[in-house]
Design a protein around this nucleic acid. Structure first.
Lengths: 266, 266
DNA sequence: TGAGTTCTTGTCAATGTGACATTAACTGTC
DNA sequence: GACAGTTAATGTCACATTGACAAGAACTCA
């Protein structure tokens, strides 16, 4: 079985690097027809996850979305994002966009994927410039979302709002562009990564009980975990330190508080 | 412990999408100073792995590199790559660049990462436009490399040559730009992925013995594996079909040939 | 025919995991 | 103050997975 793909080109010449300035950029660009021939432009978007109380009481994953005020997809919800300026790194651009659009500073951020399919632009937009999006995904703590949520995220706008990330928990089934697929992929990455990497801590505050940590895993994975086995597995985990404090106030034996001592961002 | 990062910007306004044409593109761009303010341009590079006999006899991972004929890093080896044209998807661009620069059509290809750090350009190049590279990694079968290798990969050039991927096996310790780090990251991805995904088959032909498959794993992982345990683990693997053929010619019991029946590209 | 090689199957101990029982410690009520 | 109710924390057992290794099977070569 042979893959679909380009056949070998025997007479082709080796083109090293070719990192110079594209020729189209050296000229002035006037009309729409020429704009379609432009090299793709770059944008940065971010999928931000936070834990908030879900519709059935148990915590679920939410994400902030931005309502589009222009065509295409005017009125629909989209991932926060914006263009990449020349003076910042990709991750810095993601953080800056996050702060500008949602007022959030994530505890964890990681590159997800570069989306550049040809069918990303809306069909009605003839001659629109093609956009390649480098998408990041990030985690913010629940207390941060509470603060930002009270003041309407970025301060005053109604064009930024939290939504459940998963359509199975009341999230929007469709988003602008291909953002629904992007969010699904980010969900998959988070669910994979929480099983082997120290990621769940970034959704919690400085100190937490093992039950809270288990709730984070349960909310992300979408299934309940055995408390005893969960505790046993964490016994061998590095960077998880038991403190001398206990969480009191519940009508049961007060659980011990733990602290994450590992790196705060990967 | 709080992450270093941008503080929340309370007065910031929500900037949805912003996927229009950057303003700098609407004007003619004349001088070098303005060029530094241009939005970053896009390039695609690919790390291609193939198994070839190593220096100690046992097969090791090799990759084709392209010698740079221009500054910066003139004369050094770099990953094959080139600019992204507007009419193709990211993966298609990677395949096309691969065919043009090396004459190879990979059996497996997957996006690795988007590199866009600010320190990627050479220091001597003042005002050079910033380049964001979307890097793919690919696997080609050994028989393909033998054919391409005999004719000098792309046909005639000495500017394309195979090198061991790992410096520990004789590979180049430094490459142009940040390509050494990129290759190391691709090696890490391959080593992680071979342990849980059906990836090793793409380095072999249509039919192979379990010993050959084990040699692939050993070469990638860099350690020897127990033949009996390796066989047992593959028993539970899907898409691995035993054929009625045996590989004869060795001076020992002829081993059974197997076939991979799963998808050829992920 | 027998030595040498690798293929192939089988065994055993150590380890990890899921399921579940049991004790510990606190709150609220009678 | 005893007791029920709740969750925390520990312990136990069966089962699956894994690493290490033994042993028979099947071929080639001298």
């Amino acid at each position: 079985m042979v893959l679909p793909g380009l056949p070998a080109v025997p007479g082709a010449r080796a083109v090293p690097g070719a990192r110079g300035v594209p020729s189209a950029l050296s000229r002035g660009v006037a009309n729409v027809a020429e704009r379609a021939q432009l090299p793709p432009s770059l944008a940065i978007s971010t999928v931000i996850f936070a834990l908030r109380p879900g519709h059935e009481g148990c915590p679920t994953l939410w994400m902030p979305l931005v309502r589009r005020v222009r065509e295409p997809f005017r009125g629909q919800w989209a991932l926060p994002g914006g263009p990449l300026t020349a003076a910042e790194s990709l991750e810095d651009a993601a953080r800056r966009n996050l702060a500008e659009t949602t007022g959030l500073a994530p505890a964890y951020i990681e590159q997800l994927y570069a989306f550049g399919g040809l069918r990303r632009a809306h069909r009605d937009e003839v001659g629109a410039q093609r956009v390649v999006s480098i998408v990041y995904w990030a985690l913010v703590r629940a207390d941060e979302t509470a603060l930002a949520g009270q003041t309407g995220l970025a301060g005053e706008q109604e064009n930024v709002a939290w939504h459940p990330a998963d359509p199975a928990h009341g999230g929007p089934g469709t988003l602008a562009f291909d953002h629904r697929e992007i969010v699904d992929y980010a969900l998959w990455r988070l669910r994979s990564k929480i099983e082997y990497a120290q990621v769940a801590y970034h959704l919690l505050g400085e100190m937490f009980t093992l039950a809270q940590l288990r709730e984070v895993h349960e909310a992300v994975l979408g299934r309940s975990l055995d408390p005893a086995n969960f505790r046993r597995q964490l016994k061998g985990t590095p960077h998880l330190e038991a403190t001398d404090h206990y969480l009191e106030g519940g009508r049961h034996r007060p659980p011990r508080l733990y602290r994450y001592t590992g790196p705060r961002s990967l």
